[in-house]
């Protein structure tokens, strides 16, 4: 269980059940110094508990929300699409940018998650070089370039933006 201070400064929430994908993603972000405030959860339920400060994270005060959520679609318990749907239905969470990071090239997944309010859709490339650059580019975009709303729980709506990260992105 991470310490309380780590919990409050989370900038990236990585929702990924495959430990190797997670490791590669974190490694790619670390290379560009973007993984200092990253928290990794392995299923959809835990992701929602973390964001709302409930269940395993009932001690966490969700004062500062992540700047971006990297969300896999195929997850145990609650899948990525359902996590996204619940986030967008929750007033406290609906402005958090969500990037879908998945193996699926399927048109229907793409259409469905954009309809649910995903901000970006990135297909994980198999080739490591492509994968590293894709993750790095989207990390830089959302953590360094993108300007979040001033008061995340209310106020201006985050503009949906699509990161064209690498050759594998749609």
């Amino acid at each position: 269980m991470p310490s309380q201070s780590e919990m409050t400064h989370v900038e990236v929430l990585l929702v990924e059940d495959n430990p190797y994908d997670a490791e590669l993603t974190i490694r790619a972000l670390k290379q560009h110094n973007l993984a200092n405030h990253l928290h990794h959860v392995t299923d959809g339920v835990e992701a929602l508990e973390f964001l709302t400060g409930s269940g395993r994270y009932s001690g966490r005060a969700p004062v500062v929300v992540p700047r971006v959520v990297l969300l896999d679609l195929k997850l145990p318990k609650l899948d990525g699409a359902e996590v996204l749907r619940r986030m967008r239905a929750d007033d406290r969470l609906k402005h958090i940018p969500v990037v879908i990071l998945t193996s699926s090239r399927e048109e229907q997944d793409l259409v469905k998650t954009y309809a649910l309010g995903a901000n970006s859709y990135v297909v994980k490339p198999v080739e490591f070089g492509d994968f590293t650059s894709a993750v790095a580019e989207l990390g830089m975009y959302w953590l360094l370039l993108n300007q979040p709303p001033a008061t995340p729980s209310r106020g201006a709506t985050a503009q949906p933006a699509m990161a064209r990260a690498g050759s594998g992105a749609f």
Partner: peptide, 16 residues
Amino acid sequence: HDLRAPLRAIDGFARI
């Protein structure tokens, strides 16, 4: 889809 994830790991860790 499930075949792609291990491939990514093989390629990725070999590269590392």
